[in-house]
Structure formats: C-alpha cells, structure tokens
Amino acid sequence: MTVAIRATDLVKSYSQGVRALDGVTLEVNSGEVLVVMGPSGSGKSTLIRTFNGLETLDGGALDVLGVSLDATHGERQVLAIRKRVGMVFQQFNLFPHLSILDNITLAPIKVQQRAKASAEQRAMELLDQMGIREQAYKYPAQLSGGQQQRVAIARALALDPEVMLFDEPTSALDPERVKEVLDAMRQLAKGGMTMVVVTHELSFAREVADRVMFMDRGQVVETSDPETFFSNAREERSRRFLNQMQH
C-alpha cells in the first residue's frame, strides 16, 4: 500500500504561544478515506489546508504524493501539489461571475492546457455524475447550496486529482441539502478516491471512513477505525466529544 500523505511533527502557530498545530503526525494511504473530527479550534481545518499549501508550516515535514513541503518550500512545489490535490470548501467558493461550466473548465484549460472542447466534455460528464447536468449554463447564485457544493466537487475533480480534501463540506448547508452532497462524496469514496474529510457528520464518518482521527488543541488525540471510535473510543476526550455530539 502506498502512502499518499505523510505528515511528521507538523507545527503551525498563528500568534505567539497559540499553536493551531502542535506536533501532528499522520499517514494517509492511497485509496483511503480519513475522516478528521474535533471541536472547533482543534486545528483540523488548518491541518488539511497545509496539505495543499494554503497554510504554511512553521515546523515539521510534509510529503504529499512524493512532493515535500516544509517551512521553507517554494512556490513551485506548492503548484505541483495543487494540480494533483483537489479541495472543497465549507463556503463552496465558486466564482460568482463565471457560469457553472466556466467554473469547472477554467483550471483544466489554464493549468493543464486542455482544449476547450475536451474540457467542456469532461465538465459535462462530471456534472452528470453529480446529477446536475442541467445547471451547466447557469451562474452559482442561481443554484441551491447543495447544488453549488456539488459543482465545487466537480470543479475540483476536473483536474483528475489523486487526493481530495474536504473542509467541512456540509456545514454551510441547509439540513435537507446535506444528503445530496454526502451521497456524491460516498460515490467518490466507492470509486477508490483518496480522501481526507473534515466533518461533523457522524453517520458519514461511521459508514464511509476507513479511519477516524480525533483532534483537540492542535494535537491528535486518537486515530481508530470507525467501529472502535464510535462504540468504544480509547480516549476519554474523544468519548466526551462524541457524547456532546449525540445529545
């Protein structure tokens, strides 16, 4: 089994003394779905944002798909990684002035130098896969939150990434829109995509995750298979968190 992401002793501090990441070490295998849970401010979003260089590191070493990032990496490494790692954000972050189709084809055309026709064909396939083919010529603001997030997933997939990062992808959605996005992610996981998912969706984690990692105060509290984590978590801190989530 090959390792897609290997993080060793990652450190990130935003202000003096406060460490968003305080010595995080982990591995994500190819084809694996790792769900990251934890209270807000635990550093989980910061962690996955270091995986594609949106956050810089203050210490430690990171290997993403064979490209290494550390406190001193250059722009070239970061761009190399971003072409192979897709990311989906809590707030969707679609480009409001571009049509759905243009949102998806912009990077394939500009970054991968793909021909417009083939990029659009691929975009339509992805929209089909997400069940929103008929939205192709609309603009983001004309779509519901769930549809927008599925466009964001399609946009990230258009570069044929080897790893997908999800940063609380359902937290900004109306409850009745959560399922359609989770279904799209389930489908992706079934297809063998390597995924790191920050989420509070317990049922998704229980059903789809290969492993669940629990973080608190910038540190990894425990990493377990979902069965163990949800029924018999090893750490007291994890059990307290789960208790609060379920009540």
Binding site: G53, L54, L79, R82, M87, F89, A107, V111
Partner: peptide, 12 residues
C-alpha cells in the same frame, strides 16, 4: 475564499 479557491486549483 475566492483566492483560496483559485489557488487550490493550481492557478498562479
């Protein structure tokens, strides 16, 4: 978020 979105897509 708009900056993060284009950066995460590998755009310069």
């Amino acid at each position: 978020g708009q900056w993060e979105a284009f950066r995460s897509l590998g755009l310069g």
